[in-house]
Every structure is written in C-alpha cells, then in structure tokens.
Write a protein that binds this DNA or RNA. Structure first.
Lengths: 199, 199
DNA sequence: GTAACTTACGGACAGACTGTATGCAAATAT
DNA sequence: ATATTTGCATACAGTCTGTCCGTAAGTTAC
C-alpha cells in the first residue's frame, strides 16, 4: 500500500456530497422536473460522467437527496423530544417542530411534493421509514404499551399522523397569512391527538 | 347560417374528450412523466397539433384529466351521502366510498401522486376545491352550525381530513393485505372522527 | 518498484420528447 | 359568394436523458 494524496473513498465522498448538495438546492428551487442534470453537475463542479458513475440515474440522485433531507429534519425533530412530557404536549411540540422545518422549501418541495411522484409512494415511504415515520412509530408504541393510548395499530396510525402533519405544513406554506393558518391548524390537530388517549 | 355535418363545437368536444380519455388511461398507468404526447395522441387518434391547439401544454391536459377524475369520484361520493345519518357514520361511510374509489389506479396515481407534483400543491388543491374538498367542507359546516361538532375552523379541518383519507387510500393500495390494512385504517380513523363531536 | 487491475471521471453521441411555426381545410360570418 | 375565424396536420428546432468508450487516478500483487 502506497501513500496517496487522495484516497478513492475521499474522491467518492467529495463528489457524492457535492452532487447531493447541488441537487438539494436546485431540486428545492425548481422541482425535480425543472432542473437538468447539466445544471446540477455545473453547480456541483463535476461532470455528467461523474454523476452517472455514482448514481444509476437522475431519480437515484433524487432519492439520495431525499434521504439526506429526511435525516436532517428527523434529527432536528428528535432533538425537541422530551421524554418527560406527557403525550399530547409531546405530540404538539413535534408538530410545531415539523411545521418549522417544513417552512424551508427543500422540505416542502423535495420531501412532500416531488418525493412520491418521482420515486413512487411505496419507495417514498420506505425512505421515510427509518427517519420520521420510525420516530413517530416509536413514540406511539411507547404510549400504547404503557396504556396511556388506545390500542390502535401503530403503523397505520403513524402514517395517518404524518399525513396530517404534511398537509398542515403545505397548508401553512401556501397560505397568505401563515400565522393565522398555523394557529388554525394547531387548533384542529390538538383534538385529533387527544382522541388517541384512553379515557 | 348553413347546415353543416359537424359543427365546430362538436369537433372540439370530440377531440377534447378523446384526449382526456386517453390521458386518463395512460397517465394512470405510466404516470405523467412516463408517457409522451405522441403516445397520447395516437391512443386518442388525433394529431399532436390537435392536442396543442386545445391545451396550452402537456400539464394543461393533465389538469383537465385531473378535474375529470375528481368530478367523477366526487359524484360517486355525493351519491353515498345520506343526510339522515349521524355525523360519525356519515363520515365513516364517506371514507369507505373514498377508499373504494381510490382502488382504481387513475385516482391513486393521477389525483394523489402526480397531481401535486405536476401542478403544484396550490393549483392541485384549487382543482379539488369545487369537488371533494367542497363536499367535505359542506358536511363539516352543517355539523358546526347545528352544534354537533366542536367549533373548529372548517377549511383547515377539511384539508386535514382529506389528507387522512388520501394517506389511507395509498396505504391500503400499497399493502400486501389490503383487507387487513383497510380494517386497520378504519379503526384508526374512527376515533379521529369521533374527536370532532362535542362531548 | 513495477505490472495488472479496479475505480473515478470526461466528453461525445444517439434517442426521445416538448413546444412552436407554418400551412391547409372545415366551418362560420358578412 | 367571399372573407374570416377555428380546428387540425406536419415539419422543425431545441433540450434533456442515459450510454458508450476512452483516460487518468488509485489499489493490489508480485
């Protein structure tokens, strides 16, 4: 083994992250269909050959970008979770954090709008699974086990709750008066969350 | 005014409906990005010139297809609505009907998956507004006014409920065991609907 | 250290697809 | 009957995607 200025792993990591970063910016601004690979590689300062070497096709790059954004947002969310809080405030705080995160166009456009259309619903949710969906399921599972929550199937429940949060984010994002829309949405979501508690 | 074999309005109607029907089939099967205009016009038995004469571009044709599907599904839903039933059973019956309708791939792919990505979320919901969203808002408004429901902002609530129904449809559609998934989803949705009632 | 090999990348190319422009024909207005 | 508008056909230009093949950088074997 010889000494080398840049190892292969280094090169790979550099171009991959450059491409993902560029894709993130451009997909967020123009949407998946609105930006060509040429634009992406120019922004990332690599060649189209490099792109197609590391990613099977344009949608694979998109999948990597999506996973990247998902991971980041989920990490933010996880940080706001306080295991001591009761279920309802925990959930409502998570919704708050989710709405905050989704104000960034990357999340709205990439995760919520283009994700399912580009990758298909199943693949999209698969990518969400280890991240945000898993987080929700975890919180719910605890609630079900220690009997503060009704006995409901956790997985579909997590899907429904995430769908609610997604729609809320888009609703607020598209609203002319975001503050009012946000207050309304929180007022709507709270009773839904409370409905999960045992009486 | 002379007698004419085919009036202009007839010609227009014929090609428009042919294009919409073809688009409906093909968009449902291959997705918006997966089918070219050439394929559509061949299936509709018209020329590309005709397409671009009647529709500004491919996305405008898609919008027309979406409105078409929306209208049909909403009509089906409206038929199942029985004003005499109490709120919860009314809602749960609507969910049933919605899940039935969404088993058709046209609805899943066109309305739920591609719609927001192709047209943008705002335009997408705009098209839903006169149809399914309006229907939900109507039912809710009645409930709020006669005080069987909590006082919640109707519009965001309708959005959230529709989002729940959409996710349920996609969840069931993608499931390996649709019957079980459907039962689970209904079990999850019921308490959410009940949560809207005044105590 | 050198040769063999694998991995990362660059540039050119073919195919497909979208939207437009131009020309014609059918229908309607004058 | 003529003019004008509307519906439609075809050809064309521009763009974009994915592939192919060659080259260079890095890694392994001897």
């Amino acid at each position: 083994m010889q000494i080398s200025r840049r190892t292969q792993a280094d090169r790979t990591a550099a171009t991959r992250t450059a491409l993902i970063a560029a894709g993130r910016r451009l997909f967020a601004e123009h949407g998946f269909a609105g930006v060509g690979t040429e634009t992406i590689v120019r922004d990332a300062d690599v060649s189209r050959g490099a792109l197609y070497h590391h990613f099977g096709d344009k949608t694979e790059l998109f999948a990597a970008v999506l996973a990247d954004v998902e991971g980041e947002v989920t990490q933010q969310l996880a940080a706001t979770i306080d295991a001591d809080a009761d279920f309802v405030t925990l959930m409502m705080r998570s919704v708050q954090a989710w709405l905050d995160a989704c104000q960034r166009p990357e999340v709205q456009r990439i995760v919520l709008i283009d994700g399912p259309a580009v990758l298909g619903w199943a693949r999209w949710r698969e990518i969400c699974q280890p991240h945000i969906l898993g987080l929700i399921e975890g919180v719910l599972a605890v609630g079900v086990r220690d009997e503060t929550l009704k006995e409901l199937p956790v997985k579909p429940l997590a899907h429904v709750l995430l769908a609610v949060a997604d729609e809320a984010a888009l609703y607020v994002g598209a609203s002319q008066e975001p503050e009012a829309a946000r207050r309304d949405m929180e007022a709507v979501i709270r009773p839904l969350v409370e409905a999960l508690l045992r009486r």
